[in-house]
Every structure is written in C-alpha cells, then in structure tokens.
C-alpha cells in the first residue's frame, strides 16, 4: 500500500500555474511564482504577497492536494505530486503538511476545544493541557467551550491556527492567517508559528493581501 512518506525538504514549482490562467493567456501578470522554476526550502519562511485573484489560495490548494487544476509540475523533493494517491495525501496532511485555509474550515457546531481535538485525536501530537495553554497564549481560553459558530472571525482564526499546529509538519501553509486580527494578536500568532517552525526546522509559507503575519524571523517575500 502506501509507503511511509519521508520528510519534505523542498517544494518545487516547475512552470506551474493555475490552468485558468494558462487558458486565459494572461501575459500581463509579472509573477515570481507562476510559470517559473521555484524551490521552496524547508526551514525557510516565504511570504506570498498578492492582490486578490492572483492565485494564493490556488497555490495552497495545489500544494495540499485539494485541487489539481494546474499546468506545469509541482514536486515534493523530486516526486511529482500529481501521482499521489488519496491515502498518501491523507498521511501528508497528518504528518508533513500543516494548513490553515483561508475559509478556516472550522466546524461551527463543535466547541473551540473540540474543533482542535478533532485534529489532535488524529495525530495524537499534543496533550490537552498543552492545547489549553495555547488557547491561553492566544487569549481565547475564555471561549474554549464556546461553539465555533458563536465565535468572531478573529477568534476562529486563532483557534484554527492552534488546530493547524496540532501535528508534526515539514511545511506549514497559512492562507491569510491574520486577516481579522489586530496587531497584538497578529504578533502572538506570529510568535507561535515562528517557534514551532524553528523547533521542527520546518518551512513556512504564508499569504497576505493586506495584513501580513508579523513574524520575528527573516522571510523571503514573493509576488504572485
């Protein structure tokens, strides 16, 4: 069946671009990511700056296997990800690729803690005490038992970040992670991501349209 997946050391894009762009033949766009050879290395931080509609979310979806509608090639180490099976993607999502989607994908009917436990139970990565500490650190511990549906977007964003960090990873993808956070909370989130990435020697890819994750480590800005 599925062989044990080893570490992802690099994510390489080879002339990749969303199929829709290729069909449109949009030549105006000057991108540092699409239609180029780009290697995103483990241990480094990348910030994808972009205007709306330039394919930030598409990039995250391609890298996490949610979508395959791109041209060119995307490789993990030297393996073309277009050949990965569903089971392989599931394993990658549990142990190698952490992802905070823009839509957050939280379950409104579950409490904040249950939303996080849903992931943690799968990975068995952290103790509940640790998770509660993370809630405290991001100052949403008072909402821990509140159904996610009754939380503000900013609170949900922080809760979803904690959930994304409840697994081992080689790369973490954060799609507009702080769009609804104030400067203070943005910094807290940035710290937490930077610490965890440093501890795991993992790569961080975050996107932003406006507010950008405040992270106290050097990162490589890339224009989409």
């Amino acid at each position: 069946m599925t062989t044990k997946i080893k570490r992802i050391d690099s994510i390489r894009l080879e002339d990749a671009e969303p199929r829709i762009f290729a069909v449109d033949g949009d030549e105006r766009r000057e991108s540092q990511v699409w239609r180029r050879k780009l290697s995103l290395e483990r241990g480094k931080l990348y910030c994808m700056n972009a205007a709306s509609g330039t394919g930030k979310t598409s990039l995250c979806s391609f890298i996490t296997g949610v979508r395959t509608d791109y041209v060119g090639r995307i490789l993990f180490n030297d393996n073309d990800i277009s050949h990965y099976t569903i089971d392989r993607w599931c394993e990658l999502r549990r142990s190698h690729l952490a992802y905070l989607p823009q839509e957050l994908d939280v379950f409104d009917e579950l409490s904040a803690i249950d939303n996080v436990m849903l992931k943690n139970r799968l990975t068995d990565y952290r103790s509940e005490a640790e998770i509660r500490q993370m809630f405290e650190r991001l100052e949403i511990d008072n909402r821990i038992d509140t159904p996610a549906g009754r939380m503000s977007v900013g609170q949900k964003q922080r809760m979803a970040l904690i959930r994304a960090l409840c697994q081992p990873f080689d790369f973490i993808l954060l799609d507009e992670p702080v769009s609804h956070l104030d400067h203070y909370n943005n910094e807290r989130c940035g710290e937490m991501v930077a610490e965890e990435a440093a501890r795991l020697d993992a790569g961080v890819i975050f996107t932003s349209v406006g507010a950008q994750l405040i992270i106290n480590r050097p990162f490589i800005p890339l224009n989409l």
């Binding site: 569903i86 089971d87 599931c90 999502r93 992802y99 994908d105 992931k119 990975t123």
Partner: peptide, 14 residues
C-alpha cells in the same frame, strides 16, 4: 460535503 472535505483536509481518510 463541506464537513466531509474539512475532515479530509485535516487528514481523516475517506
């Protein structure tokens, strides 16, 4: 569908 996709995105297998 959203719930199922969400679970699969977390790493739950089909």
């Amino acid at each position: 569908r959203r719930t199922i996709s969400g679970l699969l995105l977390l790493g739950y297998t089909p």
